[in-house]
Design a binder for these strands. Structure first.
Lengths: 117, 117
DNA sequence: AAATCATACAACCAATCAGTTGTACGTCAA
DNA sequence: TTGACGTACAACTGATTGGTTGTATGATTT
């Protein structure tokens, strides 16, 4: 039962790799919406939309709350932020590499200045 | 030939939804690596890794440069940033909703203060 | 020119995916 | 209680995925 970080990332990126699901996520960012509310907006069956919602939920990107007979979905902002964090982490590696190159160039320039003094 | 933004997003998130591809991306953030260099790091065939590289390239997350008989891959930092931007945009909607609620509460408090004066 | 290295790509396979229809179940209103 | 509503889930289908092996092509070395 290894709840690996990589599994979460797999699930989150997979969930985001479908425009219907990204649209659903956008719609539940600002307010909780029932699955029916969501389904009414797309040219596909209720079951299809319900599946998309399930994928988003399994990825932890949304959560559901029972209200009467409705199941209201809302975005999990922290989860979205954690996806951002994964990308920032990637970019950070690049930044540190650029910094290393800058340092190298600075050191070379210093060396060259010293010899031409 | 509609190069829709949504298509790009589909391709980028899909490319990121595989841990091998995320690892490849990590490795080519700091230096250009040939497909063989990359392939040596995984327990799968060269062809499989080459396919992963192709997926990343089609998504615009990496680019390749011929050097002799090698094909050196490097990360496209701007593309990674554009994925981040998509997520930030989502989060921004949430922030503006929170702001709206804060404004509402502030207005109510003001109203209440006025009536209890 | 021949042998080798690095890459690309086609053909195939099992598994997963995104959609469908149909059915079952819990909740609310008459 | 009956019916309608909102949801969940199973079973099926065609398309796509992630992997395989085998073959073809281009650049490098001998």
């Amino acid at each position: 039962m290894e709840a690996l970080l990589a599994d979460r990332a797999d699930a989150m990126f997979h969930a985001l790799a479908d425009r219907t699901r990204r649209d659903i996520l956008r719609r539940v960012m600002t307010e909780g919406l029932s699955v029916s509310d969501l389904a009414s907006g797309y040219d596909m069956s209720f079951a299809a939309v319900q599946k998309h919602v399930a994928v988003l939920e399994r990825a932890g990107l949304i959560s559901k709350q029972r209200v009467g007979r409705e199941q209201r979905a809302r975005a999990e902002v922290d989860a979205i932020r954690s996806v951002s964090a994964l990308l920032d982490e990637l970019e950070e590696q690049w930044r540190s590499r650029v910094q290393r190159i800058d340092d190298l160039l600075a050191a070379e320039e210093l060396e060259s200045n010293r010899s031409t003094r």
